[in-house]
Amino acid sequence: MSTDLPKLGRPSRRDLLIGGAMAATAGLSWARAPRHRIASIAPGGLEKVVPLKIGPWHYEPASGIVLPPPDALAKLLYDQQISRSYVADNELPIMLVAAYGSSQGGALQVHRPEICYPASGFRLTDTRLHPLTVRPGDALPARFFTATSDTRTEQVLYWTRIGDVLPTSWTQQRLAIMRNNLVGEIPDGLLLRVSTIHTDEAYATRALERFCRDLLADAGRDGRRKLVGPAYA
């Protein structure tokens, strides 16, 4: 029995064409892969962006308000997170959660509260678009829902920022990331959520709106750019 190894012939013209096309595709994919990361908040900077005093409210570390526990997914998605409670005379107490991810893409992108609340045992109303007037004639595209558990009813207002835009759905969020990727950029992302425990939706909503307007006013122009992007700064 012969033990000679088969001799390798010269590649055919077809092999060369296919190989060349594959190499060109790989090179084009490498060349167009997004590399420029846009991180608007430096490491450790999120705590400084959100003021400790917001309008009549002030940060109260021992307020007794039960803040939502951090979840494992959030630790993977975000570089920075803060959870605070704010209190004021003659105002409802407000819970604030802000989460920032310096790199948005694929599965690693800001996850919306409609996911984490049910995972914590809450029943949610339909989430609806809730334009938040930040100045005359200018409304920020926030969203609102009511979350109910066996122990409390929580009114929730939030927005997300991807790069310079404020998407109001998963689809808009993914499109915002894709648009940045097409020009070679990796956008950052931020979720800002405020909530209060109260059964009267209208009354609670007005308090949340006042808090958000005061937050954006007290954050200053640079802080507003980081929280809501340049269009609302």
Rank of each mutant, 00 (worst) to 15 (best):
W170H: 01
D89Y: 09
E114K: 02
Q173A: 00
L215V: 09
L96K: 02
Q104A: 04
H198T: 01
M1A: 07
R128V: 13
V165I: 01
P118N: 02
A74W: 08
P69C: 11
L96C: 05
F144S: 06
P136S: 15
F211Y: 12
H198A: 06
V183D: 08
F211H: 10
I82P: 06
V228F: 13
V228A: 15
L208D: 06
S2H: 09
H58S: 13
R143Y: 11
E114V: 01
S29V: 15
L28H: 12
P11S: 04
E185Y: 05
T127D: 10
L129Q: 11
S85L: 06
C116S: 08
H130T: 02
L208E: 06
V97G: 05
I54E: 05
K75M: 13
V165N: 01
E91D: 09
I94E: 11
S63H: 11
R13I: 08
D126L: 12
V49P: 05
I18T: 11
E114M: 03
V194W: 05
R152G: 04
M1V: 02
L216R: 06
I18D: 12
L5C: 03
L108Q: 05
D89M: 10
W159I: 01
D79E: 15
R152D: 11
M178D: 09
A24Y: 11
H58Q: 15
A147I: 07
W57L: 01
Y117I: 06
G105Y: 07
P131M: 02
S85R: 03
T196I: 00
D15W: 14
R14F: 14
D214P: 10
T127G: 08
I186E: 09
H36V: 08
D214F: 14
A42I: 08
I162P: 02
G163E: 05
G55I: 05
T125I: 01
A98L: 04
L191M: 06
T151S: 15
Q173M: 04
R179Y: 10
D79M: 10
V156W: 07
P43C: 04
E201G: 07
V110W: 03
R224T: 07
R152M: 10
Y117A: 00
Y78W: 14
I82R: 09
I18Q: 11
R206E: 12
R174M: 02
F144D: 05
D222P: 12
F122A: 06
S195C: 03
L192K: 00
Q173E: 10
S63V: 08
S120V: 00
T25D: 09
V50W: 04
T171P: 00
H130D: 08
T171F: 03
S40W: 13
E47P: 00
V194M: 03
K226L: 15
T199S: 11
L5K: 07
G55L: 03
A219D: 12
D71Y: 09
